[in-house]
């Protein structure tokens, strides 16, 4: 893997909010077809780190490279141009709109006259939901009327619909039941086999051990270290999260 060009390189990323160093000199990378887990306590800076990649925040310093070339990502539109799709921890849904309007927000399907084509969009949403979450039925209700799991499926569907090359998933299964969580795991396996690179933020160490190739651990805005998952145990990862110490022997890349 190390001979390949990384899909994404985040180099020495830093950002602070009014004196709080939310992310402090963090470097991680991601290869095609790889899943990299991001671990750490609440407030460790995981969401903030990936928001600099998704264009939600502008970094104070650091460099983003995509396929080896320096990328300029100032806003979410820039990120979409690099085929970066994000499932935000907050889901980022407009509660007053229906599933289709949310899924296509900013990229609406239009008719030949340039009007938004709601029927075509709903039809697409029905197709993708049939694969992602067959129980999903509330196509014409505003998403505020949906359950937590259904809302999460809408956010997931939005991220995978548009041929992402780089997928960011910030705690994608937090509101899901066991069955839906299993479907997301299968989805991740499938996307991985298609060569998509995935950053997966998760609290569940078991999930990370099972789904990820590598794991990067953060604490207090700093990177503790990056390890190959097959070189470490659950306890090693826990130690990194809690104590902020790199385990012996496993020395990342």
């Amino acid at each position: 893997m190390s001979t390949q060009t990384p899909l994404v390189e985040l180099k020495n990323m830093s950002i602070s909010f009014g004196g709080v160093h939310a992310v402090d000199d963090v470097s991680v990378d991601l290869y095609p077809g790889e899943v990299v887990g991001l671990l750490g306590h609440n407030g460790a800076g995981k969401s903030t780190l990936i928001k600099m990649l998704s264009g939600a925040y502008a970094a104070d310093s650091g460099e983003i490279r995509i396929n080896g070339k320096v990328a300029t990502i100032h806003n979410p539109r820039d990120a979409r141009r690099y085929n970066i799709e994000t499932i935000y921890q907050t889901l980022a849904l407009a509660d007053n709109l229906d599933a289709a309007s949310n899924l296509f927000l900013g990229r609406e399907l239009v008719t030949s006259l340039g009007f938004v084509d709601d029927d075509a969009m709903e039809s697409e949403v029905r197709k993708i939901m049939a694969r992602l979450n067959p129980n999903f039925q509330k196509f014409s209700d505003p998403v505020s009327a949906l359950s937590g799991g259904q809302r999460q499926s809408v956010a997931i569907a939005r991220a995978v619909y548009f041929d992402a090359k780089i997928l960011i998933m910030d705690e994608p299964t937090a509101a899901l039941g066991p069955q839906e969580t299993k479907m997301v795991s299968e989805l991740i396996e499938r996307l991985k086999s298609e060569g998509i690179g995935i950053f997966l933020i998760s609290h569940d160490i078991h999930d990370v051990m099972h789904l990820c190739d590598r794991a990067s651990v953060m604490k207090n805005g700093k990177l503790v270290g990056t390890v190959d998952v097959k070189d470490v145990t659950d306890d090693d990862l826990l130690g990194m999260i809690i104590l902020g110490k790199h385990p012996h022997g496993a020395d990342g890349k």
Partner: peptide, 28 residues
Amino acid sequence: TLVSTRTRFGRYVYATGGNPEAAELSGI
């Protein structure tokens, strides 16, 4: 009515009102 229900502009007006942050993250 056409603008509010059938154009992108109208859609973005409602999306922004519903969740400004989500609208911004969707590239609006």
